[in-house]
Write a protein that binds this DNA or RNA. Structure first.
Length: 271
DNA sequence: AAGTGGACCTGCTAGC
DNA sequence: TGCTAGCAGGTCCACT
């Protein structure tokens, strides 16, 4: 999916345009990961408020409650007037006079869930246990070091879990570990305070750079304007198995951790 | 309790 | 050219 940069880029591409628009119709397609939890007609007539993000979730405020949205592995949102007839992978339309917000998600791991507020179930339940936002001042080397010390899993697995810091999925966890010079297989509790500091910086800078570049488009990611991202063009390890490391020329290695592919340079990244 | 592996669903691609 | 196994950006859940 869409990791934090793709979700944030998506949010930025439609939040201002949809704010204040009144819902005129709602269309629901095939089932997504979780049920909507409300009759779709209940949204008709309500105005859309702020669109905010927590981790990889978006919260779209309505006058009564709101919608928690997740893009899963293959989801994207579009917003505009040129939406046309829904295709086989278009599973949710929020129609307003300013345009239609449409969720397209071939694999349907994504979700749209109504909640009375972001602090009430089911939204609060889904958001509970999420780690710090990477751009939160509280997320620093000391925090990351303390959290990593409590785990014995590989540091990459700990990052991906999202319980310490949210937002880095498979691409950006690999890239941040490369930036920090840390072998992704290193046990969490063996990361020194100094290296945790470098890793925290790398997580922030990698995610920030990806937002600047409009995210990564590996297959079907597009922002709500339909624009593709460009970060994948400057990924240094992700998806580059066997290719030379951009820093030292050593072939990039691919291993599997927790059923996910991990890419790293065996020379630049150390335990 | 923490760690591991499977499940969800569909489409694309590399390889035979 | 055509089929198939394997793989894909996430996260929850059951089991050890």
């Amino acid at each position: 999916m869409p990791e934090l940069p793709e979700v944030e880029v998506t949010r930025l591409s439609f939040a201002e345009r949809i704010r204040g628009a009144r819902v005129t119709a709602v269309r629901v397609g095939k089932p997504l990961r979780w049920p909507l939890g409300s009759a779709p007609e209940a949204f008709v007539g309500q105005r859309v408020g702020e669109v905010s993000r927590r981790g990889k979730y978006l919260w779209l405020a309505l006058e009564r409650g709101g919608l928690l949205m997740h893009l899963g592995m293959s989801g994207s949102l579009s917003f505009g007037h040129a939406t046309g007839e829904p295709g086989p992978h278009d599973h949710f339309d929020l129609v307003t006079a300013r345009g239609t917000l449409r969720l397209t998600d071939p694999r349907r791991f994504g979700a749209v869930v109504w909640s009375a507020s972001a602090d009430a179930a089911p939204a609060a339940t889904l958001l509970a246990g999420l780690g710090l936002e990477p751009f939160d001042d509280r997320f620093d080397g000391a925090h990351l070091h303390a959290a990593l010390r409590r785990r014995r899993v590989a540091v990459k697995t700990a990052l991906l879990g999202g319980r310490i810091v949210v937002g880095a999925g498979n691409i950006y966890a690999c890239e941040a570990l490369f930036e920090a010079g840390i072998d992704p297989r290193t046990p969490s509790d063996r990361i020194s305070r100094a290296r945790a500091g470098r890793l925290a910086d790398a997580v922030r800078s990698t995610l920030a750079r990806a937002v600047e570049l409009g995210g990564s488009t590996l297959r079907n990611f597009r922002d709500a304007h339909g624009a593709a991202g460009a970060f994948q063009l400057e990924a240094k390890v992700y998806g580059r198995a066997g290719k030379p490391c951009v820093r030292c020329g050593t072939p990039i290695r691919r291993v599997v951790q927790g059923a996910r592919a991990t890419f790293f340079c065996p020379v630049c990244q150390r335990r």
